[in-house]
Amino acid sequence: MDAKSYIAQMEERIDRAQSGSAFTLSDFTDLMDYETAKKSISRLEKKGTLRRVLRGIYDKPRYSNLLREQAVPDPDRVAHAIARNYNWAISPQGETSLNVLGLSTQVPADWSYYSSGPTKEYPLYELSIKFLHRSNREMRGMSSNTLLMIQAIKAIGQYKITDKEIMILRKSFTTEELTLILQEGQNTTRWIYEVIKEICKI
C-alpha cells in the first residue's frame, strides 16, 4: 500500500473523531507500522489536519468562533492520549474530576490525574497536566467511570453534595455504566458508597 493510501486511512479515522480529539502514533499502528505512521502523521501536521500539542501527541484542532482562531487543546483528551501512549491507567482527581463531569465551570490551571505510571508533569500552553503515581493495586478492579465518580464525590466533600449535583452525576452515565459503578464501588469508603447508591437509583 502506498503512502497516500495510508494517509487516507488516517484521515478517515480523524474525520470520524470529534473536534478536539487527541491522538498518538499508537492510535494508528493497527493500520500501518510505526515508522509509516510517524511519516504520515508528520504530513498531516503540515497539512493542518492535525496539530502537535506535545511530543508525540497531536489533536484535531477545534475552531473557536468567539476567539476566531483555533482553541487551545482539550487537557482531558490530551491526558488520555498520553496515558494510551504509555499504557497507563489514569483517573481525574479533585477539581479536574468536577470539570470533566460538568460539576464545575471553573477551568483549573493544573489538570491532575492519579496514574499507574510515574509522577510526571506536562506543560500544555498556559496549563499543565500532572500525573500522580498510584499503585495498580489501588486502581485495580474499578473501571475509569467508577474511579471518576469516586474522585468527584471526594472533591465535593462529605455531607456537601446537593440534589442538583446528584442529578448531574446520574445523567453523566448510562444505565449500564451506573450498574457497574454500583457494583464496583462497594469497596470504597462507606460514606462515598452511600452517595454512589443515591446517584445510581434508576
Rank of each mutant, 00 (worst) to 15 (best):
K38V: 04
I196V: 15
F173W: 12
R140M: 12
Q9A: 08
R52P: 13
G48S: 09
I161P: 08
T96G: 05
I161W: 06
I199Y: 02
L25N: 11
S172G: 09
I41F: 06
F131H: 07
E138R: 12
Y63C: 08
R134A: 00
A81P: 08
T174V: 05
E138T: 04
I82L: 15
R13I: 09
N145K: 14
M32W: 00
E95T: 12
S42T: 09
M139N: 08
T119A: 15
S143V: 02
L67V: 03
Q183I: 12
Q186P: 04
I199H: 01
Y63S: 07
T119E: 14
L31H: 03
R140T: 08
P75S: 09
M167Y: 01
T174R: 14
L180E: 15
I156Y: 14
Y86K: 10
L31R: 02
A3V: 07
Y86W: 09
R137G: 01
E184K: 14
K38S: 14
S19K: 14
L67N: 10
D110Y: 02
A3N: 12
N65C: 01
G117K: 12
R84V: 09
I129M: 05
P61R: 13
M1V: 08
H80N: 13
T189C: 00
D15F: 11
I166C: 03
R55G: 06
E12C: 03
V100Y: 02
V78Y: 10
G117R: 04
Q151P: 02
I199D: 04
Q18T: 12
I14G: 08
L124H: 11
D74G: 08
T29L: 00
L127M: 15
L148V: 00
I192A: 05
Y122T: 04
T24W: 10
Y193M: 04
R77Y: 03
A152F: 10
A8W: 01
F131Q: 11
I82F: 09
T24S: 15
E69K: 15
K130C: 08
Y122R: 01
K164I: 08
K160H: 10
Y34A: 09
L103N: 08
R51M: 03
M139D: 06
T105R: 11
D163V: 13
A79D: 04
Y113N: 15
G141H: 13
D74W: 07
G48I: 12
P108W: 01
T162A: 01
I7D: 11
S104W: 06
T162K: 12
S5K: 15
R68S: 05
A81H: 03
